[in-house]
Design a protein around this nucleic acid. Structure first.
Lengths: 358, 358
DNA sequence: GGAGGAAGGTGAAACGGGTAAGTGGGCTCT
DNA sequence: AGAGCCCACTTACCCGTTTCACCTTCCTCC
């Protein structure tokens, strides 16, 4: 009986109006906290709505010019890369805390490339499926920015550095953290510090490489950068290549955690001892960094915070048209078991001492 | 000008109808491939729709009794657990391949507990925000099943074993894979094989434990099961406890990859050599299993396939009311570098020989 | 040559909630 | 006591799409 009623007939504001003996319009005003309804009637309507279990139909609400009540996130990395990047899951968790507290949904789509990502933006916006989007992995030449501006689609770029075009943005101070890491290693006495970077098309890769090069130059140390496609195999391969060099680096900074874990595995596989023979630093901390042996020294960013700030900025943009540009706190270097003095280094080399001033 | 036009006026079927000189109804029939329109008119309408860049308004479509065009997925594990479980990202990637090929969206929500998860189902269904949901981590006493049946919400349970209630389900043959692993270890000569399980409330945990116990009994080996909360620290801790035992296990089977990686780290930390001193097996393979050193022997399941089959089953349920129950292929044991003969074992012990017959 | 039927439409009514414009009734002010 | 005004509603239409009940025309068949 009850079952059948539930299945057959959705509860609408018309039902509430009928029971309350008022018009649909009055019910709508009451439910939306708008003026024009006496407090006693409003309470009566709210009680009836609660009693008969009314929920607004999201489609009807969206149709009458209001919000879709959802934000979108497109992930355009290959699925294989996504799976082991804990970054995205942490980011999503952070986004959710903000969105769900405001009863806004998150619509997710995984695609293969930028073209497909842009097609999704077009479709979502044309269908009014989302009110705005969060954009990750900003690129050097990013065609998404132009499209989004042209569409008038509210968007927040996550990952910076800095904003692009006229869009809202949330980013972390990667350059600063890179400087910290390089100086820390130099202070330990390292001179041959290599950087294993991610894909060069990403802005985050470039800004980190530039900060690395600048700091190395400042310390008069020889730079060495190799790029990867963020895949673990690639991280292991370049680590093997670097360490097989006649003059191998004594420290390696990786651009992701999975690259670092793969690098650690590769070093062990070559019979090297970490950190005795080589020091390793991961970018982005995670459980994996902490449980491998030895635990990885890593740059820890508050990724959930970046997600929730991004979501918050997006809602502000959607609701009030406010463009926000927020730099997050600089990543913290968590020194653990994979960094130590370089092998065969005098306790105080001339360079080590001079770099100790930073 | 063009900009202004785009921003101010959405393209609707009324515009198409006007240009084509037909009624709105005719346009709707044409666009949805329904009969009642001549082929030539249909083509003319489709061309006009394409020319003026028409997209269906998802809200209007959903409102007139049709589909919401989205499926839902609620993740109720704590965010910290989610981040390092590559399982979920792989599952989502698999779900997406199926959904996006049919232009159905995926709405995601991350919550803290079962209560909140159920509240989300209620709300989504009441608001008609989704057409159905994918439910993960089925439990022994699962209150979600009753709620979903009561709501009449189309749902597919992912992760089994087997279906629950009247719902569609997709699961993997975990019991079979556990039998494979235990027998493989026994054949290597292991007698003290421990199992590090996940949270006991999950059905997957129970079915694996039962299969483990049955196989151990069958082989006349002493069973030992410890449970964890799936957190890495917990995996490291129980590993240390197990290995510090006066009569420690010579092989450990973990219930997730992160537990196994943490266990490997703990073993190394204790100065043990893997696999010489102890053999380790991970459940669910991942990049991390392959890049740590030595690479972890692991049970590999095709998780994206499970996701896409789940999504496919859900769409079949939504569209045609078809209840599907699919057991996926049994997980494959990928033997790598963390399993070997137990220490100090004669090449052919009586038990080792007898168990070799399986 | 009129019944019957199908093809190819038309027009209007849902769907559920938002909201501008109107409408009484009671109150205040002078 | 009449003008003016505000409160608390009601009425009516909007949003964009689907769908249902008709309504023409034209063709076929006996």
């Amino acid at each position: 009986m009850t079952q059948k009623t539930n299945l057959r007939h959705r509860v609408t504001i018309a039902d509430i109006a009928l029971r309350a003996g008022v018009s649909k319009g009055a019910v709508s005003y009451a439910l939306n906290g708008r003026p024009g309804i006496s407090e006693v009637t409003r309470q009566r309507i709210l009680k009836i709505a609660d009693d008969i279990g009314w929920y607004p139909n999201s489609a009807a609400r969206a149709l009458s010019g209001a919000r879709a009540g959802a934000c979108g996130l497109v992930l355009a990395r290959p699925a294989r890369t996504l799976a082991f990047e804990t970054f995205f899951m942490e980011l999503i968790a952070g986004i959710e805390t903000e969105l769900s507290s405001r009863s806004v949904g998150l619509t997710l789509q995984v695609v293969h490339d930028l073209e497909a990502e842009m097609a999704v933006y077009r479709r979502w916006w044309a269908e009014r499926r989302v009110d705005g989007v969060l954009v990750v992995d900003p690129r050097l030449e990013d065609p998404r920015v132009e499209l989004i501006e042209q569409l008038g689609l509210p968007a927040v770029i996550i990952g910076g550095p800095e904003g692009i075009g006229s869009l809202s943005a949330v980013w972390s101070d990667d350059a600063g953290a890179v400087v910290d890491v390089v100086r820390y290693l130099a202070r330990l006495g390292h001179e041959r510090i290599a950087r294993v970077a991610g894909v060069p098309e990403f802005r985050s890769t470039e800004v980190r490489t530039e900060a690395y090069l600048a700091t190395m130059a400042e310390l008069s140390l020889p730079p060495r950068v190799v790029t990867t496609d963020f895949m673990a195999e690639s991280g292991a391969r370049v680590t093997r290549q670097l360490l097989a060099d006649p003059l191998p680096p004594t420290a390696i900074i990786y651009d992701s955690e999975v690259l670092a874990v793969a690098g650690l595995g590769a070093a062990h596989e070559m019979g090297l001892s970490v950190p005795r023979d080589v020091s390793l630093v991961a970018w982005d901390d995670s459980t994996y960094c902490q449980v491998v042996h030895p635990p990885l020294t890593a740059v820890r960013r508050d990724i959930p915070a970046m997600g929730s700030h991004g979501a918050s900025a997006l809602l502000a943009l959607i609701d009030d048209g406010v463009i926000t540009r927020t730099g997050e706190a600089r990543g913290q270097l968590m020194t653990r078991g994979t960094t130590a003095r370089p092998p065969h280094t005098p306790v105080a080399s001339s360079r080590g001492t001079s770099s100790g001033s930073v």
